[in-house]
Amino acid sequence: MSDVTPGPEGSESADDELRRRFREALDRKKSAQADAASGGKGKGSSKIHGAHGPVAGKRSFRRKSG
Rank of each mutant, 00 (worst) to 15 (best):
P8C: 00
A25V: 01
G50H: 02
V4K: 11
H52M: 03
P8M: 05
E24Y: 03
Q33V: 07
R28P: 01
S38Y: 13
S46D: 03
L18H: 03
A34R: 14
R63S: 09
A25K: 04
K58E: 08
L18A: 13
A56R: 08
F61R: 08
S31A: 15
K41S: 13
V55F: 08
S11H: 04
E12H: 04
K41E: 14
K58V: 06
A51L: 14
D35T: 14
K58S: 04
M1S: 13
S13I: 03
D16S: 07
D15V: 10
V4F: 13
D35W: 12
R62A: 03
S65P: 00
P8D: 07
S38E: 15
K47D: 09
S46F: 02
G39W: 06
P54R: 04
V4T: 13
G57V: 01
E24Q: 11
A36F: 10
E17W: 11
S45G: 15
L26A: 06
A51E: 12
R20P: 00
E12Q: 08
G53A: 06
S38R: 15
R62I: 07
A56L: 12
K43I: 10
R21L: 15
A25E: 10
D16W: 01
K30T: 08
M1R: 10
D16T: 06
G53Y: 00
V4E: 11
G57R: 05
H49M: 03
H52T: 04
R59W: 04
A36D: 07
S13G: 02
E17Q: 11
P54A: 03
P8G: 02
R62H: 08
S45A: 14
R63K: 15
S60V: 15
A37G: 01
S65M: 07
A32S: 08
A51P: 01
Q33C: 12
R19C: 03
D35Y: 11
R63N: 13
M1Y: 09
G57K: 01
H49L: 06
P8R: 08
G10F: 02
K58W: 05
G7P: 01
R59C: 04
A14E: 07
E17D: 04
K41D: 14
E24W: 02
K58T: 06
A36L: 12
D35R: 15
K43R: 12
F61V: 13
E9S: 05
K43P: 01
K43M: 06
E17G: 02
R19D: 13
I48Q: 04
E9T: 07
G57I: 01
A56E: 06
K58G: 00
D35G: 07
R59Y: 06
K41A: 12
R59E: 10
D27Q: 09
R19L: 15
E24M: 09
K43S: 06
P6M: 09
Q33I: 05
S60T: 14
K30W: 05
S60M: 10
S45M: 11
E12F: 11
K41F: 12
A56M: 06
G40Y: 10
R59K: 12
L26Q: 03
S45E: 14
D16N: 04
H52G: 00
